[in-house]
Computed example of a mutant assay.
Amino acid sequence: MDAIGKVFKRAGLSMQTLRQDRILHEAFETEDPIRLIRLFGINDTTAMRNIKAAHPERTAHLPR
């Protein structure tokens, strides 16, 4: 394990958890899936999932 990994482990975090938190925070701020795709190298489905999680009030609920 590298030095950065040890710091995260002592803090009780994982690098993956921190990355996911950062993506969600950016989704709260920008609401732009293209920015998320470019910034984090994620696919469009993941970007939209994070936008929907950050802004559930904007998700269209169509009647069935």
Rank of each mutant, 00 (worst) to 15 (best):
H61G: 00
R64P: 06
L13V: 13
I4E: 08
E57Q: 07
L62C: 01
R49D: 11
I37P: 00
T46V: 02
R64S: 06
F8N: 04
I4C: 09
K52Q: 13
T59I: 06
A3G: 08
M15W: 05
E31A: 14
I23C: 14
T45E: 13
K6P: 08
L24D: 03
V7P: 11
G12A: 14
K9F: 11
P33I: 07
I37C: 01
P63C: 00
F40L: 06
V7W: 03
R58A: 03
M15S: 14
G41E: 15
K52T: 03
T45I: 11
M1F: 08
A54H: 01
N43L: 04
I34V: 12
R58C: 05
M48H: 06
T17P: 01
E31G: 07
E26D: 11
L24S: 08
Q20I: 08
K52W: 00
R22K: 15
H25Y: 11
F40Y: 08
R22S: 15
T30N: 12
L24N: 06
P33V: 07
A47C: 03
R22L: 15
R35D: 10
Q20N: 14
L13D: 11
I23T: 08
T45L: 10
H55S: 01
A60C: 04
A47T: 02
G12F: 06
L39E: 15
E31I: 10
R49K: 11
E31W: 02
L18T: 14
A27V: 07
R22M: 15
E57K: 03
A11G: 04
D44L: 09
T45H: 05
K6D: 14
Q16C: 03
H25L: 12
L62W: 05
S14T: 15
I42T: 01
P56V: 02
P56I: 04
N50V: 03
H61L: 04
A53S: 05
T59F: 00
G5R: 09
T30E: 10
M1A: 09
